[in-house]
Design a protein around this nucleic acid. Structure first.
Length: 792
DNA sequence: TAACGATCTCTTTTT
DNA sequence: GAGATCGTTA
């Protein structure tokens, strides 16, 4: 790993940046943004302007001419974060950001493998398995190997395989400890063979293939090493072993890596994330400068005090304490209820009051530890007629009907995709039963071919039905040649019989609507996103392939043309299928509506809200019982709680319940130990602290419950209403300080007149979505864009 | 082979 | 409580 000796650093003053770009940065942020090209670790606390630093850094590097857009790679974990970065960058830079290598680890790997599919040993139209697909693929392997599903639980086997890949291990690399692992490794090998045969890759495979190709192909590695002068990694604390090794492959001797992370927000150790990567990075990249961003711009003092006090109970920390200049703000409110049901009722009342006081519902988040907890909340919200939106849970592209439609589409692209084949071969039912399928699978296994290729081997009625199915898919492929993506999907939904099936189903209405929504999603994908974004095939594969086969390593010949302009575009359908697999898609509830935000704490990472409710703070739930066995687990739960607390800007509620329905039965819970780790001075109990059963409150509640009349005003009766919060009115300002609000007309020098649709974020991070009519819809960073309010 | 009901299990987090 | 799986029946 080569480094940058200090005598080669640019002298004193950094290259001049355009006015405005570096404004409003505090000294630490400024240092991070304008650091000379060398490896650096940025310890960025919650709400310390981490994303701002990352994006401003990229913009600064480009605008000062230190690197071209093609020389930057920025990696994130979630699609949300990647999108956010692109949005902010496009507001800061006058150049198209589309061709830049900014995306999730998996998104970038996909891009890489699409470009070098041949070298990677993949079919050009390889498909991506999501976790569901992976599970069913593993099940098939286990069945095919005649293994006992009791001993080889498909889920655990899937876990095992994913874990191996995250450690960069192929079957041959895995240490055989006992008979069971030996068998597991066999399953792993068989699974790999099956995936390869079917031309599909799972999430781990995307990473591992990319890593291996970079490792084994020197020409390719040198090319990318030279290309990426600046590599920026977001949420570095969440990287696993493989991702870190991957990063080391892409970082060449001339590259500068900026790793941004927060060890206190490491909440994915359970799936392989290694916080230790931060220390390893510091050592292996010989980082001589660690920049700490400790000033918090998000939350008031009491909230921050709570977060700091809590996290101080963890032992292994890199050390960091958040501070703010915003003043103490309101105390953290704590509520104890008698049941999860009562908790939901109380929460709704409280949220309604806030809404009446002017807090947007979308600025109120309800967080919980596990998805199962959302049910009670949802039904209470539904009954109260309050709009809400649940994040997580079943996402759009994971719904059964959507997966069915996608399976047909995938078969059009790749008939050998057995996972998809099995999913829809008898859906809607067409007389192909378990027996027939078994025969088909036997035939396929015997000949080592795909199900599609083996159809002829099955005789009798089942065989005829199978032939009809294959003919149907072939006919769909024929009929959709040359159609637009929208038309293709519409055709498939009809021709497959899915539409008819759901039309006659009694509960099929919603599913039909979702299928319509799929058509819309495809349409939106083509027009707005520009489907080439993730699926541009770079025209280098042949050349690079030639090098691999021993011709002189004319590295210059591998030079990549700027992706977006000359990239050969794969079919819209293929691109859309990739999109569907890589981005599960928010479950697109009532989009655009002002709705309460419900999500798990994990899903909330990286987000912020004016008001946050953290519910279900009970032993066994939060911290979760599965994590209590070891100290590491508990520390991770604490970090999770830390993440939850630091989501709140202005008001934070913590609630726990004495009883809770779980697994269909009532459990009696003790309040979470985390309460004992919060500073009393920052808290305010809004119910008597030691209220036990048998209190008057309890009797009222029981009575109301037994009458079936609900709780109405009973819960929470008798306590002082809170005064309306002064901060409730939505505010944002132009870079000149003029007030802005949604619905407001504005003027922009380049885009002309527009109307603000939504405002997100606040302060330096505030941004607005503005409809500029014929100039289209734009997201602009308000601290950067020059906007003038106009009278409407 | 399909449809229905009974039974069983598993419930942390996700690209 | 819900989903997947299993078993019975037509």
């Amino acid at each position: 790993m080569s480094l940058f000796p200090s005598d080669s650093e640019p002298a004193a003053a950094p290259p001049t940046a355009p006015a405005g770009l570096l404004q409003h940065l505090n000294p630490e942020q400024y240092a991070a943004v304008t650091l000379p090209p060398r490896h650096v670790l940025v310890l960025a606390g919650a709400g310390s302007g981490k994303t701002r630093v990352l994006t401003t850094r990229i913009a600064w590097l480009i605008q000062t001419g230190q690197v071209g857009p093609g020389g930057v790679m920025a990696v994130t974990f979630t699609n949300k974060a990647a999108k956010e970065m692109l949005t902010r960058l496009s507001a800061m830079l006058p150049i198209p950001v589309r061709g830049m290598w900014i995306g999730t680890f998996h998104g970038l790997c996909n891009r890489f493998l699409r470009a070098h599919w041949k070298l990677a040993g993949l079919p050009q139209s390889f498909q991506i398995l999501d976790s569901q697909d992976q599970l069913s693929a593993v099940k098939r392997v286990i069945k095919a190997m005649n293994l006992d599903e009791e001993r080889f639980v498909p889920k655990q086997v899937t876990w095992f395989i994913a874990g191996c890949k995250e450690d960069g291990q192929r079957p041959k690399d895995v240490e055989v400890r006992d008979e069971h692992t030996r068998k597991l490794i066999e399953v792993y090998q068989a699974y790999e063979d099956q995936c390869q045969r079917e031309g599909v890759v799972d999430f781990g495979e995307l990473m591992l293939r990319t890593y291996e190709l970079m490792r084994d192909n020197a020409a390719l590695r040198e090319h990318y090493n030279r290309r990426f002068r600046h590599i920026l990694v977001d949420e570095f604390q969440d990287t696993n072993k493989l991702q870190y090794a991957w990063l080391k492959m892409f970082a060449g001797p001339e590259s500068a890596v900026m790793a941004v992370g927060d060890d206190d927000q490491s909440i994915y150790a359970f799936r392989g994330a290694q916080v230790g990567n931060m220390a390893d990075f510091e050592r292996e990249f010989r980082v001589d400068q660690v920049i700490k961003l400790e000033r918090n711009y998000r939350s008031f003092g009491n909230i921050l005090d709570a977060a700091n006090a809590l996290i101080s109970h963890n032992t292994r920390r890199l050390g960091k304490n958040l501070h703010t200049e915003a003043g103490p703000g309101e105390p953290v409110r704590v509520y104890e209820s008698n049941s999860d049901f009562a908790e939901a009722q109380w929460l709704i009342e409280e949220a309604q009051q806030l809404h009446r006081d002017g807090v947007a519902r979308s600025e109120t988040a309800v967080l919980y530890r596990s998805n199962a907890q959302s049910r009670v909340l949802e039904s209470a919200l539904f009954n109260a007629g309050i709009p809400y939106r649940v994040y997580g849970g079943l996402r759009f592209f994971e719904r059964a009907e959507i997966k069915h439609a996608l399976a047909y589409l995938r078969l059009i692209e790749n008939p050998n995709d057995d996972t998809s084949f099995l999913r829809v071969v008898n859906f809607p039912t067409r007389g192909i039963g378990a027996r027939t399928i078994e025969q088909l699978q036997d035939a396929a296994r015997a000949s080592g071919r795909s199900l599609h290729q083996s159809v002829g081997a099955v005789a009798g009625k089942g065989g005829a039905n199978l032939a009809a199915f294959v003919a149907l898919v072939d006919a769909m492929r024929e009929a959709t040649q040359g159609l637009t993506l929208r038309e293709i999907i519409e055709h498939v939904i009809e021709a497959s019989g899915l539409a008819d099936f759901y039309r006659t189903e009694k509960e099929g209405r919603e599913r039909l609507e979702n299928l319509d929504e799929l058509v819309n999603a495809a349409e939106a994908f083509v027009t707005q996103e520009g489907f080439g974004k993730d699926a541009v095939a770079l025209p280098v594969d042949e050349q690079a392939g030639a090098i691999a086969e021993g011709s002189p390593p004319a590295v210059a010949a591998v030079d990549l043309a700027p992706d977006a302009e000359t990239g050969e575009i794969v079919s819209p359908l293929a691109a859309f299928l990739t999109h569907a697999a890589l981005e599960a898609g928010d479950n697109q509830a009532q989009a655009g509506q002002d709705a309460l935000q419900l999500m798990t704490v994990h899903a909330a990472k990286g987000l912020e809200f004016d008001v946050v409710f953290i519910t279900g703070l009970e032993e066994g739930l939060f911290p979760h019982e599965n994590s209590l066995s070891d100290a590491d687990g508990l520390e991770e739960e604490r970090r999770l709680m830390y993440v939850a607390i630091t989501r709140a800007r202005k008001r934070l509620y913590l609630s726990h319940s004495q009883t809770r329905m779980l697994h269909g039965q009532t459990r009696y819970n003790v309040k979470s130990r985390f309460f004992d780790e919060l500073p009393e001075s920052a808290l305010k109990w809004i119910t008597p602290r030691h209220q036990g059963f048998g209190s008057g409150f309890e009797r009222d509640y029981r009575a109301a419950w037994q009458r079936g009349s609900g709780l109405g005003g009973i819960v929470g009766a008798g306590r002082q209403p809170d005064t309306p919060p002064a901060w409730a009115a939505p505010k944002a300002t132009t870079s000149e300080g003029q007030a802005l609000r949604a619905g407001q007309g504005v003027f922009h020098n380049k885009f002309g007149e527009g109307v603000i649709l939504t405002i997100e974020g606040s302060g330096a991070d505030a941004r607005a979505q503005i409809n500029f009519g014929r100039h289209g819809m734009k997201w602009l960073a308000l601290s950067v864009a020059k906007l003038t309010p106009v009278e409407s």
